[in-house]
Simulated scan of single mutants.
Amino acid sequence: MFTVLNAEAGLSECVRYDVCDPDFGPWMAVWIAGLVLAMLWLAVTFAATVDILTAPIGARRTLLWLVLVWILPLVGAVTWIRRPAGDI
Rank of each mutant, 00 (worst) to 15 (best):
F2N: 11
F2S: 01
T3F: 07
T3W: 06
L5G: 12
L5H: 11
N6K: 09
A7R: 08
A7M: 12
A7C: 09
E8V: 09
A9Y: 14
S12E: 07
E13P: 01
C14G: 03
C14F: 01
V15I: 01
V15F: 05
V15E: 12
R16Y: 11
D18G: 11
D18W: 07
D21L: 15
D21M: 03
D23S: 03
P26V: 11
W27V: 02
M28F: 10
M28H: 12
M28P: 03
M28C: 05
V30W: 07
W31F: 15
I32S: 10
G34D: 08
L35H: 04
L37C: 15
L40C: 07
W41P: 01
W41F: 14
W41A: 09
W41E: 12
L42A: 14
L42N: 01
V44N: 03
T45F: 06
T45K: 00
T45P: 01
T45E: 04
F46C: 04
A48Y: 00
D51E: 07
I52C: 02
L53H: 15
L53Y: 13
L53K: 14
I57A: 09
G58I: 00
G58C: 00
G58W: 00
A59T: 04
T62R: 12
W65P: 09
L68P: 02
L68R: 14
L68Q: 08
W70L: 07
L72I: 06
L72F: 13
P73I: 04
P73A: 14
P73M: 06
P73C: 05
V75M: 14
A77W: 01
V78L: 04
V78I: 14
T79F: 04
T79W: 12
I81L: 12
R82P: 01
P84K: 02
G86I: 04
D87N: 15
I88P: 06
